[in-house]
Design a binder for these strands. Structure first.
Lengths: 128, 128
DNA sequence: CAGCATCCCGCCGGATACTG
DNA sequence: CAGTATCCGGCGGGATGCTG
């Protein structure tokens, strides 16, 4: 198969780690929230309610490592202030990511309906 | 934040399960390979070399449940033949998914370079 | 405020063996 | 060929406690 100049599964082996990062629940949320602009650690914590402090830190470190997010220390001493923002590379990801989010938003209802229907069918066969 | 008519994190809570499915290493590979056309179980196994037989089955079941993939029994008796193909819903996913794959293919080198640079820097600080 | 360290449990997913 | 069943090791990720 061909996607532009890459083949599957050949190059898919290389890009799937990247897709995993994107598909990662927390990473995606962080990137989406940061697409609004730079935010401080505490703000991120509050805006992504469901995330634990540990996973926010882990995710930010991973994104920073990949060059998608950059970290700036605003004030060294109390209270310390750290600001996170998307790098240029990170911003370039927003467009395709948004496209996928829009697909998801558009089809989430349909998928949930299908899922429910499928489960109901399975339930029926179990009895029969 | 706004993505069309959805807000983050409000609706992101609903769509992130969908993104997780997409971001799922195996699901993505299966969808990409099936985008070429219907394939039989054994063919899928061979084309996605790295996948275990267990995960292929699990992934196909999940995709079928969500209405992204459909399963057709071609021959009931020996040798059994089962064909998998994308549903219309599944096909509608290809475009945004391809976009993301292209982004990945385009940026995988850059990301790996940044990662290496970041790790090298960390290595240096560890010693100093 | 912005983290790091530690403990610990659940489940993801590989390996292996068996079936219609 | 196209699966199902079982075992089980590793790690993802929550909870809690401590620091500059």
């Amino acid at each position: 198969m061909k996607l532009g100049n890459m083949s599957v599964p050949g190059d898919c082996a290389r890009i799937s780690p990247i897709l995993s990062r994107v598909g990662d629940k927390w990473a995606t949320l962080v990137i989406l929230v940061l697409s609004e602009g730079p935010k401080r650690y505490g703000v991120l914590r509050r805006e992504i309610e469901s995330i634990s402090q540990r996973m926010l830190t882990v995710t930010l470190r991973a994104l920073e490592r990949d060059g998608l997010v950059s970290r700036r220390v605003l004030a060294e001493k109390n209270p310390p202030q750290v600001e996170y923002s998307l790098t240029e590379l990170g911003e370039s990801l927003i467009e395709p990511l948004f496209a996928l989010c829009q697909w998801s938003a558009l089809n989430v209802d349909e998928i949930e309906r299908r899922r429910a229907a499928h489960d109901a069918r399975a339930e029926g066969e179990e009895v029969g």
